[in-house]
């Protein structure tokens, strides 16, 4: 049941517990409890809103930074990751396989502020060997949802 609940909540966090229970054919109380449990267990870590900021006047810049680091003895990558993700500017941190170690996604008000963060905070960290910063130019799809408005329903209103 947990995975079914998560599959719906992932794309519609505003759905009521009642509707969720009905749609899954489960008991409302059991669903509410499962959600509480998953919140407590940090499986559900928060309820976000997916926003297409390009549609607003807000100035926002997103950058994806490939970071190479030297892992620490006894701590592996976790401690360095922690050092990086504590910064408010940092949106996401993933440990990667392949040519670099971390993908760090940061959001800033301007390219300048992002550049400053990289040069003043991230790059100087002792374990960081190198950073490659890529700025996002346009978001087309995020979290499985496209940012372009859907076409209106073109089906006939009544059909057999």
């Amino acid at each position: 049941m947990r995975e079914e609940i998560l599959a719906i909540l992932e794309h519609n966090a505003r759905i009521s517990v009642h509707d969720l229970a009905v749609m899954l054919g489960k008991d409302e109380k059991a669903v509410a409890e499962a959600i509480c449990d998953m919140e407590a267990e940090h499986i559900i870590c928060g309820y976000d809103t997916l926003i297409n900021w390009d549609g607003t006047d807000a100035e926002k810049v997103t950058a994806l930074i490939e970071v190479k680091v030297t892992p620490q003895r006894g701590m592996g990558f976790d401690r360095i990751a922690e050092h990086i993700y504590q910064y408010d500017e940092v949106n996401s941190v993933y440990l990667m396989s392949g040519a670099f170690d971390f993908t760090v996604i940061i959001e800033g008000r301007s390219m300048k502020s992002v550049a400053r963060f990289v040069s003043e905070k991230l790059a100087p960290m002792e374990e960081v060997q190198s950073c490659a910063t890529h700025f996002v130019l346009k978001k087309y799809k995020d979290h499985g949802i496209t940012f372009v408005a859907e076409d209106p329903d073109e089906r006939m209103l009544i059909s057999p």
Partner: peptide
């Protein structure tokens, strides 16, 4: 019988439909 109803609905703007078979 669907045809007849279709004609009425088509005339009506901003109707929402639960009438499709697709």
């Amino acid at each position: 019988g669907i045809r007849k109803f279709f004609d009425i609905v088509s005339e009506m703007k901003d109707a929402i439909s639960l009438g499709v078979g697709e």
